[in-house]
C-alpha cells in the first residue's frame, strides 16, 4: 500500500514539474522580450547594460507611434463592424431555417480553418483585379473577414433554447420585434458578445498576414512595421512599447475579473 502511494506521489510531483516546464517555454519569450526593453544598445544584439531610456524615447519614434494608433483604430473599427454583423448573423443562423443556411455555415469555417495567407492572397487578387485602392478600407475588410466567423462561432455558442422562449414571452406580452431584440435577445447573449469583442480586438491588433498583404504602401500597422524592422534589427523602444501593451492587457483582465466577481457576489446576495 505504502509503495503504491509513494509511486502516486512521485507521479504527481513529476507532472507538476512537467507543467512548470511547459509554462516556462511559453513565458520565456515574454520575459526575454521585456528584459530587452531595458537594454542600453541601439539595436538589440546582446545585453549591454540597464536603462529605462527607451520608455521615453519610444514616444519620439513617430513611425512606431503612428503605426500603433493605426493598429488600434483598425482593431476598434474591425471589432465594431464584425461584432455587429456577427451578432445579427449568429441569431439569424441559429433561429431561422432558410435555403442557403448550410452554405453560409460552411463558408464561416473557411477563414477559421484555411491558412490565413490563402484568404489574404485571394482577397488581394480580387481587389487588384477590380482596382480597389489598398489602404485602410482593404485592411478593414480583410480583418473583418476573419473576425466575423470567430465572432459568429463564439456568440452562437451562447444562444440556447432558453433565449427563444424568453423572446416568445416578450412578444406575447406585447413587445415588438425591435424591443424584443434590444431588451431580451441582446442582453441574454451578452457574455457571448463580450467574448467576441475581446477575441476580435486581439485577432485584429496582432494580425500580420492580412495587414501585410492588404496594406498598400502608405501606412503600416504595428505588426507589419515590426516585421519590416526585423531585417535591420528591432530597436529596444519596440520592446518597451510591447511591454507596456501587455501590462495594460493584464491589468485590464484583472480589473475585469474583480468587477465580474463583485457583480456575482451582489447577485447572489440579492437572491
Amino acid at each position: 500500500m505504502n509503495r503504491v502511494e509513494k509511486k502516486k506521489r512521485r507521479g504527481r510531483i513529476l507532472s507538476e514539474i512537467y507543467a512548470i516546464l511547459i509554462y516556462s517555454v511559453l513565458y520565456i519569450p515574454v520575459f526575454v522580450m521585456m528584459a530587452f526593453s531595458f537594454n542600453d544598445q541601439r539595436y538589440n544584439y546582446y545585453w549591454v547594460g540597464f536603462t529605462t531610456k527607451w520608455y521615453g524615447k519610444m514616444l519620439t519614434n513617430t513611425a512606431l507611434i503612428n503605426s500603433l494608433w493605426y493598429s488600434i483604430a483598425i482593431a476598434i473599427l474591425a471589432t465594431v463592424i464584425s461584432v455587429a454583423i456577427a451578432t445579427l448573423g449568429a441569431i439569424g443562423l441559429q433561429r431561422y431555417e432558410f435555403r442557403s443556411k448550410k452554405f453560409v455555415n460552411n463558408m464561416l469555417y473557411i477563414p477559421i480553418i484555411v491558412p490565413e495567407i490563402v484568404l489574404a492572397v485571394a482577397i488581394l487578387v480580387v481587389f487588384m483585379t477590380v482596382g480597389v485602392h489598398l489602404g485602410l478600407g482593404s485592411i478593414l475588410i480583410g480583418h473583418c473577414t476573419f473576425c466575423i466567423p470567430y465572432s459568429v462561432v463564439t456568440i452562437k455558442g451562447r444562444i440556447s433554447g432558453d433565449n427563444m422562449s424568453m423572446e416568445e414571452a416578450s412578444m406575447d406580452l406585447g413587445a415588438n420585434r425591435f424591443q424584443t431584440f434590444w431588451r431580451v435577445t441582446v442582453p441574454s447573449i451578452m457574455p457571448g458578445i463580450v467574448s467576441a469583442t475581446f477575441l476580435s480586438f486581439t485577432l485584429s491588433i496582432d494580425d500580420v498576414v492580412m495587414s501585410n498583404l492588404l496594406a498598400g504602401a502608405k501606412q503600416s500597422t504595428l505588426p507589419v512595421l515590426i516585421l519590416s524592422m526585423n531585417k535591420s534589427g528591432i530597436t529596444p523602444d519596440v520592446n518597451a512599447l510591447t511591454t507596456i501593451m501587455i501590462l495594460f492587457i493584464v491589468v485590464a483582465m484583472i480589473l475585469n475579473n474583480i468587477i465580474k466577481g463583485a457583480l456575482k457576489k451582489r447577485k447572489t446576495k440579492e437572491a
Partner: peptide, 25 residues
C-alpha cells in the same frame, strides 16, 4: 424580413469576401 435582416449581412460578407475570392484564385 427578419431572416434577411439578420442573416443577410453575414451571408453577403462571406460570399463577397470568402466564396468569390476563393473561386477567383
Amino acid at each position: 424580413g427578419p431572416v434577411l435582416a439578420m442573416a443577410g449581412p453575414v451571408s453577403i460578407w462571406m460570399i463577397l469576401f470568402v466564396t468569390l475570392p476563393m473561386l477567383f484564385i
